[in-house]
């Protein structure tokens, strides 16, 4: 198939970017979207042009490094699918495809489609952990955890940190990302003890990074590659209010 591509090119964080047109022929339906991008890059090399920079690594939907806005949707037209798991059979011959980076002022564009998601790391640093140092652990079976609780914790912990939730959010909110970690740790007995401190610190950091507020449109759940439920945001809200109501300051 033949495609018309409109791809965002930007030299670096401080310069302005723009959409550039490319034509690509010979794309087959079983190629992945990123393989199509590889193919385009090979053609650019042949022409002596700088290749299009985009983030990707595992190409099996788990590392969370890839992520682009494809035809105006985070990770492209499919729900709950990373960019690397999107295949060209989702597009039509002759189609025009727009490709842009994930946008939010908390995600700086580094070059072309690569963005800096260090803000996510800093939210985790604020409190997204259990303070258990190596060697402090008691025997694993001494803390029984109900099957349902373990499964619920997994549902939250499955987040791959790709940033699609932020990219698709009309407010660029990191609520789903933050909530997933807060809830994962809060519902486990090991992590419960630090909940109040954790949720407060993570909310502060989320704001300090410049993410917006959550207005419950639920778009994030649709685009989330792991389908993390927006109910985690509700529970995160609950835990936050609880921590504020019970706090001593």
């Amino acid at each position: 198939m033949k495609l018309n591509l409109k791809i965002w090119r930007q030299e670096n964080a401080s310069e302005k970017g723009r959409l550039v047109d490319y034509q690509l022929d010979g794309v087959t339906t079983h190629m992945s979207f990123l393989e199509m991008m590889d193919m385009l890059n090979q053609q650019l090399i042949e022409k002596g042009e700088r290749t299009i920079e985009f983030d990707h690594d595992c190409r099996e939907g788990i590392c969370g490094q890839c992520g682009m806005m494809i035809n105006g949707r985070a990770h492209g037209p499919l729900a709950n699918t990373t960019t690397c798991q999107l295949h060209m059979r989702s597009f039509k011959d002759g189609e025009t495809i727009y490709v842009e980076p994930f946008r939010s002022s908390a995600f700086t564009v580094l070059r072309d489609l690569k963005v800096d998601r260090g803000s996510f790391d800093r939210i985790i640093q604020a409190g997204g952990f259990i303070s258990a140092a190596t060697g402090q652990a008691p025997e694993a079976n001494s803390i029984p955890i109900a099957h349902e609780t373990a499964e619920a914790a997994f549902d939250a912990a499955a987040c791959i940190g790709c940033g699609a939730c932020v990219a698709t959010c009309k407010n660029s909110s990191a609520a789903l990302f933050t909530a997933a970690k807060v809830v994962h740790l809060a519902i486990l007995p090991q992590g419960k003890l630090e909940t109040a401190k954790r949720v407060d610190a993570m909310v502060q950091q989320m704001d300090a990074e410049g993410f917006g507020h959550c207005s419950n449109t639920e778009a994030c759940e649709v685009e989330c590659p792991q389908g993390i439920s927006v109910l985690h945001i509700a529970r995160f809200n609950f835990l936050y209010h609880q921590s504020r109501l019970m706090s001593k300051t």
Binding site: I130, A137, A157
Partner: peptide
């Protein structure tokens, strides 16, 4: 296994 459980691995 003990260590991972303490860290919250589900």
């Amino acid at each position: 296994i003990d260590q991972s459980v303490a860290q919250g691995v589900p």
